[in-house]
Amino acid sequence: MFKSAASVERLANQLARLPGIGRKSASRLTFHILKMSKDEANDIAEAIKEVKEKVGFCTTCYNISESDPCFVCSDNRRNQEIICVVEDSSDAAAMDRAEGFNGMFHVLGGCLSPLDGIGPDDLKIKELMTRLKDDIKEVIIATNPDVEGEATAVYLSKLIKPMSIKVTRIARGLPVGSDLEYADSATLSRALEGRQEF
């Protein structure tokens, strides 16, 4: 078998550690990088270094951020009285793209999963409770609709309700722009349960 240079192999091995990248893709990417100009390749390397140096966590909402507080937490045009609770930063980004939400975020850093040894103390739940002491009117729980996300949502609602703050859960159902016939039966029956009167 063809034995590649140690540095080539090292890059391929590092790339293969990324999610969704297998052995083959990693080696294709490696050879692509080898073909790039030195400047182009440096840009990638610099970008990776920069992101790790500059990005940290906002100590208010625990979203990833270059500043502390982050741009959402320091934006006073946003509705400070509504907090949307999500599992991960990527979920916060998705919610932020949605029109119709202009409140604050709180990133838990995962969801409850005792099977993986993750309990309430491993998530930013205490931090959320501290934030709720300020004038918060509503908490929207936007954890994933799987068992772990549901359990996290129930756990949070049990904590927050006694504080007389409105707790809501995002609806589940059909994705917009999709065809009914391609929806799986679980999604469809959820959509049926959540049907609304005209």
């Binding site: 409850l112 005792p114 099977l115 309990g119 772990e148 359990a151 996290t152 129930v154 756990y155 049990k158």
Partner: peptide
């Protein structure tokens, strides 16, 4: 849900939310 609850019981993690589910 049951296996999550049993894991919570073993780890002494609060399990009320699993009872609800």
């Amino acid at each position: 849900i049951l296996s999550q609850k049993n894991a919570a019981l073993k780890e002494n993690i609060e399990f009320d939310s699993y009872n609800y589910l």
